[in-house]
Design a protein around this nucleic acid. Structure first.
Lengths: 213, 213
DNA sequence: CTGAAAAGTTGGAGTCATTGCAAAATTGGT
DNA sequence: ACCAATTTTGCAATGACTCCAACTTTTCAG
């Protein structure tokens, strides 16, 4: 009833393995570290590693970290009179402006990005996560607008919004990788965000305005 | 001087291996067929397969097939007074309208898509090709407009255009997979193309107009 | 036409991710 | 302290991919 001491231990073990693995990957690169090494360094068997993580990439990219429904949450939380796109742009700007570590604006992110940058497997996994984001957003937009299954608009809008989100994230990654400080990158990305908003059409910017049913 | 009988044989062998592999993949799925089986069916050794193809996925998706520079070619070939986006949309419409097999509007494409759809490895490889397309287009747009390396616009426009291209290709794939005939899918996609053009802003639609330096 | 050099093919051994299975060790509750 | 559920582990196997040395075929100069 006490909600398992067992559960706690499991979560601990899982976190520990992931931390150990992350350290090794950052130190020596994703491909240069074998799962066996991770297991040894974490003092567990290889099978235990696979017991917690479905694949090697998940040791580094724990996608359960609430990234896939980020856009959906932002859209669902849009204010009265605010469109889906406006909400996404506003939230993005807030994160960038506040130099939030949630979007990679922090010291040490460059090292993290480098690992991804240098590993095709990790890059591909990043894309897969991005795909989940789009699919999730498509569903949310359909729910929020009541669009029929044949209406292609929600998917197109979802594509545009997740393009915007992905472009910002990629821009941050690239600039941090190039040695920028969080503050510098934040400043630059605000300009990019302005350019981006300028590139979105009114159709996009006015889709799914809350309270305009 | 006769430009090798050797070269001809090599190209033949390569093509043959790819054909045999494709047949097996369509018949039984990508993951269910081992490279060893492909090699045996093609009457060569596994090493020979790897001599021609860097990875198993390349047996099915031969990315040398001029897809990566498709957008760049379209943009470079834009007419006088035509923008990059207008050229891309025009070419896309032409392909769709003419029910071109180059973009998957042909019988048998569903079987081809099914293999990709069911294999994470192949889907991921498709994305990687898409990435090459964007990068290629970014460079082309910079060349065509003379934009400086710090101007973020070319990358943003490239992102929008390759989003449009990718969306159309994905739409075709999904509809063919769902059992549509090439003619039906062509008709539906023309409507999607109209919606899509409506979603692009004038900024995008008027970028890099030929002869408006 | 003939004998290397060059290029292509092959077999075999090895690494690594990932899976399946059954034995062994732990843990929670009684 | 004991039982049953849960975890952890060892072992074996599959399959992609690489490295390497031996072997065969093609090219080409003489």
């Amino acid at each position: 009833m006490a909600e398992g001491l067992r559960e706690r231990k499991k979560r601990q073990t899982r976190q520990y393995i992931s931390d150990v693995a992350t350290g090794l990957f950052i130190e020596r690169g994703f491909d240069a570290v074998t799962v066996a090494e991770v297991a040894e360094a974490a003092d567990v068997s290889v099978n235990t590693v696979y017991n917690y993580f479905p694949a090697k990439e998940d040791l580094f990219l724990d996608r359960s970290k609430g990234v896939v429904d980020r856009l959906s949450r932002w859209v669902r939380g849009r204010r009265d009179g605010e469109s889906a796109a406006a909400a996404v742009l506003r939230e993005l700007r807030e994160e960038v402006e506040s130099v939030s570590p949630r979007i990679g604006l922090m010291d040490g992110y460059a090292a993290f990005m480098r690992v991804i940058h240098d590993s095709p497997a990790l890059r591909s996994r990043m894309w897969a996560i991005g795909q989940e984001v789009v699919v999730d957003l498509e569903r949310t937009l359909r729910e929020e607008t009541g669009a029929g299954p044949d209406d292609p608009l929600p998917d197109l809008i979802a594509g545009q919004l997740s393009w915007a989100h992905g472009t910002v994230m990629a821009g941050i990654g690239r600039r941090m990788l190039a040695g920028g400080t969080p503050a510098e990158v934040s400043r630059e990305m605000l300009l990019v965000l302005d350019e981006m908003e300028d590139l979105l059409s009114d159709r996009v910017l006015n889709y799914a305005v809350r309270g305009a049913g």
